[in-house]
Amino acid sequence: MQFSKVSGQKRQHKVILYALSTCAWCRMTKQFLEDNNVEFEYVYVDLCEEEDKQKIRDHIQSKGGPLSYPTIIVDDNMIITGFRTDKIREALGL
């Protein structure tokens, strides 16, 4: 699976963003992370191969999340669904 990396100064958490290339909420979320100088990796699920889509689904569901985008996984244990700036701030200490 090809993740794209966005560099930032805030690196204390491992942040993964699962997004859709066409989704406006995903775009806002990505922008929010960039604006807050958070380092993260993202992948556009709709552009992935079938095998990777299934891996992503399993990853999200193993963390108890719904199959909604954007989905952020912090340190591989906390999951945030949707453009929820309050939750993102809290999880990342912004």
């Binding site: 859709l20 066409t22 989704c23 406006a24 909420w25 995903c26 699920v45 709709d46 199959l67 985008y69």
Partner: peptide
Amino acid sequence: RYGYPSCPCRLA
């Protein structure tokens, strides 16, 4: 890409 305008915020 699909031939119909499916929701941009859902995986089709």
